[in-house]
Design a protein around this nucleic acid. Sequence first.
DNA 1: TAAATGACAAGTG
DNA 2: CCACTTGCCATTT
Length: 115
Amino acid sequence: MEKNEEIFWVTEEFQRLNPFTQEVIRLIKSIPYGKVQTYGGIARFAGNPRGARQVARILHSLSKKYGLPWHRVVNSKGEISLIDGREEQKKALEIEGITFTSENKVNLKHYLWEP
DNA sequence: TAAATGACAAGTG
DNA sequence: CCACTTGCCATTT
């Protein structure tokens, strides 16, 4: 790892976050290029199956600070939930080779990543 | 302190 | 597949 960007998880600020939030951040950062995960999936793997909305909140508030690949998180139907920025997210995914159906959905069978 | 909100999800008919 | 309801829970108002 080269700089602070890559070792944020040992910073005091990161350590102060609750364990669920920390795990959510780690999981989102580990979604590979060209793959996606769902809000509920991230929540489940982070230890709280009912924390989907918290995952959304974390994406909304901490994506920039922790450099999260926020565009790789979609809803359980494979749709983009984000309203403002819907196009931006779609483009970001297409750049990674992900294609959308005519219904503007990604094929989760094909692109879903599991840790 | 209470009510509303939200980048969600699963169940039901 | 669609429309609608219910459950969720930290954060915001």
